[in-house]
Simulated scan of single mutants.
Amino acid sequence: MTSRTVKALHPALRDDIGDLTTRRPLPGPGLEQVDPFLFLNHHGPQVYPPNNRGLPFGPHPHRGFETVTFILDGELAHLDSGGHESVIRAGGVQWMTAGRGLVHAEISPESFKRQGGALEILQLWVNLPARLKMTTPAYTGLQRADIPAIAADAGRVQIDLISGEWEGQQGPIRSETGIAMAVLRFEAGGALSPAVPPAHNVFLYVVRGELAVSGRQVPAGNLVTLNQDGDAVEMLAGTQGALVLFGHAMPFDEPVVAHGPFVMNTAQEIQQAVRDYQRGLFGGIPGG
């Protein structure tokens, strides 16, 4: 296999939401998307005191894409107008397909607001192609025990497989667009060179630690873009190990028109989304 070379590093920029520490590597200066990956918010790490107000993401609409939320620390409650409800704890993942439209809330459980605690969350937005923009909304909440943990490099790397296939094992999420997604946990000196189809775009964000990608050092808080000049991604962790969000997918190569919580292909479709939401066609949830 031939390792892809690094195109550029894109540091996450600070953009706090109220008292929630937030950094965003995508979109950023010079990088609008890594088709079909659109947006990443890195919330925390931080510690909430007892009797806190919790997360600020009350009821709001979405249409035309998917949200994938990784709970690295703490807890996250989900409620949406499709009738889905869950509380996902550390190590778990929420995968929501907004499709034709729904209203959802991502908030802290009452127990977390009373007791406080550590919190760190990643939220990734993944586009849907035109043929699936108006698909039926769906939601899957995975606890840590629902996610396969695959050992590699003599146990120095753990692959938490969310979607796609890894050496014959299938992730619990079956993506309709063939997206592969995993959380990679490297011990010091751990190495991994996963195969990636040459036509796919790679999504690689270093959450913690330090990682060498094709020999280039990547500090925590950086998104790496790669050239499409190989069929593998060479990764080597530094002395403190690393935590990495890793995915890949075939790009859609379609127009992207985004407006707030809606991502469509044309401005007219955005206008229709706004009208549909205002008419109540996305449904509602208690307190919304």
Rank of each mutant, 00 (worst) to 15 (best):
F186M: 02
A237Y: 11
F186T: 07
P197V: 07
E75S: 12
A118K: 11
G44H: 00
F262H: 10
F252V: 00
R275Y: 15
R4V: 12
L281G: 10
A180S: 09
G209M: 10
W166F: 14
V126M: 13
P59Q: 06
A180M: 02
P25E: 03
I17R: 07
G18S: 14
L128I: 09
T140V: 14
R63M: 06
L223F: 08
P11N: 14
G83F: 12
G117M: 06
R156E: 05
H42I: 09
A90I: 12
N222T: 15
S163A: 01
I71E: 02
A191P: 05
V103A: 02
Q46W: 13
E85H: 12
R14L: 12
G117W: 04
V93T: 02
Q278M: 11
V87Y: 15
Q272S: 13
G238N: 13
N51D: 06
V183S: 04
V126H: 04
N222D: 13
L161H: 02
D35H: 02
I147F: 07
G247W: 00
R114T: 08
R23V: 03
M1K: 12
W166S: 13
L243D: 04
R114Y: 06
D35A: 04
N222E: 15
G74N: 15
Q143W: 03
T140R: 14
G241E: 02
E75R: 14
A273H: 04
G178T: 03
G221M: 13
A212T: 01
T239H: 05
F282S: 05
G288M: 13
N52T: 11
Y48M: 09
L20A: 00
G178L: 06
L20G: 00
I173S: 03
H43N: 07
Q271G: 15
V68H: 00
E234S: 10
F65G: 11
E75P: 12
P50W: 03
S3L: 15
G58A: 05
D16S: 00
L184D: 01
A237R: 15
L31P: 00
L281W: 11
V6D: 07
I179G: 01
G64Q: 03
G44M: 02
P50E: 02
Q268C: 04
I88K: 14
V244H: 02
M134D: 09
E234D: 13
G168C: 08
L40V: 14
P109F: 09
